[in-house]
């Protein structure tokens, strides 16, 4: 090869060459280049995937699903019966959205979603999970003490409200259908969607009440 390897020093910068990426980044680059050469992955498909998850998919999708369910009782029934199909009606489908289950909050039941083993999450409607969802603290505490977790987050539930925790898996992914806030009868779907946060669809928050109105 003709060039001098120098593995003895730790510097990541050589004056003659370019900045060397981190060891981790080099491992990814090595694996990717080998898989591309073998025809096991297509670089264009990888770029398209990254673009999709960085800029096109996020909790706004889920908020539109929730708003539609609030506004259209027939849609809500379809959503609760077969979530994947009902969500696909709005154009949201793809990886990690194949077997969706929507769990409905009611005045007597609050639902909370976790993945205790890893990070299963409904990508087509929520995007990729936030850091805390992937943390051991949340994965363990959500099951052991869901009321405590909710209370710390400022979600205070009446004592007669029961909490159900849903453990997502690689086969089933859950989305919470929050309770529609009061005083929202006159709002259009798009305005309703603005009230729906990502966290309310995981079950760690409640939808925000419309601005300027009493809760």
């Amino acid at each position: 090869m003709g060039d001098n390897h120098d593995h003895d020093h730790d510097h990541v910068h050589d004056h003659d060459g370019q900045d060397v990426p981190s060891a981790t980044a080099l491992r990814v680059k090595a694996l990717e280049s080998l898989l591309v050469e073998k025809g096991l992955v297509d670089p264009a498909a990888l770029d398209a995937l990254i673009d999709t998850y960085e800029s096109k998919i996020g909790p706004r999708n889920g908020a539109r699903v929730v708003a539609r369910a609030w506004a259209d009782p027939a849609y809500k029934q379809r959503l609760l019966k077969d979530a994947s199909s009902a969500i696909a009606e709005l154009g949201y489908s793809g990886a990690q959205g194949e077997h969706m289950v929507v769990v409905e909050n009611t005045p007597s039941v609050h639902n909370l979603v976790v993945c205790t083993l890893c990070s299963c999450y409904p990508w087509p409607v929520l995007g990729l999970p936030p850091v805390w969802y992937k943390s051991y603290a949340y994965r363990s505490r959500a099951v052991i003490d869901p009321r405590g977790v909710l209370a710390e987050l400022g979600v205070s539930l009446a004592e007669d409200v029961s909490v159900r925790v849903w453990d997502s898996t690689s086969e089933i992914r859950y989305l919470v259908l929050p309770l529609r806030p009061p005083n929202t009868d006159n709002l259009e779907e798009e305005a309703l969607a603005d009230l729906v946060s990502r966290d309310s669809m995981i079950g760690v928050a409640l939808p925000v009440a419309p601005e300027g109105r009493a809760r």
Binding site: S135, A137, R141, L153
Partner: peptide
């Protein structure tokens, strides 16, 4: 999203 990230305030959980 302009909504507050409620879970960011949970003690013991990463922001």
């Amino acid at each position: 999203m302009s909504l507050p990230d409620r879970a960011a305030g949970l003690p013991g959980l990463p922001k």
